[in-house]
Design a protein around this nucleic acid. Structure first.
Length: 206
DNA sequence: AGATTGATCCAT
DNA sequence: TGGATCAATCTG
């Protein structure tokens, strides 16, 4: 079965494509406390030097340099002095772009062996700050190469995502970005398999 | 709605 | 060098 670490070629593509492809992939963390993984269900794309919502829109600085780096490395920054945000750098070197990972589902450790239930229940880790706290991601992981399969990486576990299950919405917290704030560059995956009747109207927002 | 918190960035 | 800003979260 497919259970592959996502290689740099996966990330060396148009960011909006990569962003949607990341839904259903798994973020994996390995540290002294063990192994932890979460299924990605929400991301945001920050694309190119013109995107005023992107940190890179004002060019190369100490912080944004990493966004100009090669695809498949981590961009982690501290925000509001207390939270971290985890991004994956995309596209070719020198073209600044990244994808913010906003939410994952973590499978609860199922204790029983019987496995009578349809699937293990999962916990939603919703929000980039909470996600980094839960996965112990900090500035130490900034610039980390995510394609090595050490410490922190992304994994394809073979789940297929129908595009009809992806909702696009405006990015959060970028009202300062003028017209760029209206781009529908946030992507969220519908919750698990259920009859997708009532879901549509509600969808994405807080 | 308000407080929190510190690295970063740019204007003095 | 100082001070405003901030891709967020928690509390009330």
């Amino acid at each position: 079965m497919s259970k592959k670490i996502l290689p740099s070629d996966f990330f060396r593509r148009r960011t909006l494509l990569v962003a949607r492809d990341l839904l259903g992939k798994h973020l994996v963390r390995s540290n002294e406390r063990g192994l932890l993984s979460g299924r990605i269900i929400e991301v945001e794309a920050y694309v190119g030097p013109k995107d005023r919502a992107s940190h890179a829109s004002r060019g190369r600085t100490k912080r944004t340099e990493v966004m100009f780096g090669p695809p498949g490395i981590a961009y982690v920054y501290l925000i509001y002095g207390m939270y971290h945000c985890f991004n994956v750098v995309t596209e070719r070197e020198d073209y600044p772009a990244a994808i913010l990972i906003r939410a994952v589902e973590v499978e609860n450790k199922s204790v029983g062996v019987g496995g009578a239930s349809a699937g293990p229940p999962s916990t939603l880790i919703d929000g980039p700050g909470r996600l980094c706290r839960h996965f112990a991601i900090s500035l130490e992981q900034n610039r980390h190469d995510l394609t090595l399969g050490e410490q922190l990486w992304l994994e394809d576990r073979g789940e297929l995502i129908a595009s009809s299950r992806i909702v696009a919405a405006p990015r959060i917290g970028v009202d300062y970005a003028g017209a760029w704030a209206e781009k529908l560059w946030r992507f969220r995956l519908f919750p698990g398999k259920r009859s997708e009747t009532k879901q549509r109207s509600v969808a994405v927002d807080r």
